[in-house]
Amino acid sequence: MNPRVRKRLWVIATYVVLSFFAFIYLVPFIRSFIASFMTWEQASAYPPQWIPNPFTLINYVKLFRLELFPRWILNTAIYAGIIVAGNIVLTSMAGYAFARLSFPGRDALFSALLALLMVPAFITLVPNYIIIYRLGLIDNILGLALLGIANVSSIFLMRQYFLSLPQEVFDAARLDGCGPVKAYFYIALPLAKPALGAVAVYQFLGAWNAFLGPLIFLRSPENFTLPVGLSFAFARTMWTEYTPIIAGSLVAAAPTILLFIVLNKYLIRGIAITAGKG
């Protein structure tokens, strides 16, 4: 076969495969989005229908009749905000110290922290519940956030980033009069914007989507985050129709989806930094 024809065929085959998978990964979102504007009667019709008729916002209206729904959005935002802020401050400091300062036991401590990535969350669940309980922070977003404000993968990401900066810049700063702490504020932190951005986005996604932690550490419905709230409110027995659940799911997922679509290049590249540490 002519190599040019062969190449053309290969490209076409690639597009076919890529598009097939894109269909599989996207269709649940598309289908949900369309159905959220349908009556339940139409959304549950067989075979599936694709054009909302009548076009209705009733599902969203019903959703916001759930008194606590706005409250859950707010709670999730507060939780995510604390987690992002905490991680930016704490893990950039720790990552900098692990990467650029020397102190006794540094490598051992870092390995010990890294090993926590391999420890399943379930083993620490009950003890942490007891600790937070003893601190009187059960049913409090602060108590929940305390568990996640110094994420080990964030520390790892920050450390790798600071290691990748040239030593000479820090030497120059040393000669120009920066001690270890000054160098953190004047040199390391301003240079770490890309890594801080990555930490912020990953931690935001993680906090916004978290389920197990909020489920256990938050007790009263008005303190729930979105995933916990939705998982209870949308217990199937409570609803005769499913379209408001779909609408609620889409509203809850919208921030992460939008964030991802805006930052996709950045995010996909960022994974490259964290991956492969094993």
Partner: peptide, 10 residues
């Protein structure tokens, strides 16, 4: 990648 950034509960 979109499913991976979406909450598992949702």
């Amino acid at each position: 990648f979109l499913p991976a950034v979406t909450c598992p509960v949702i």
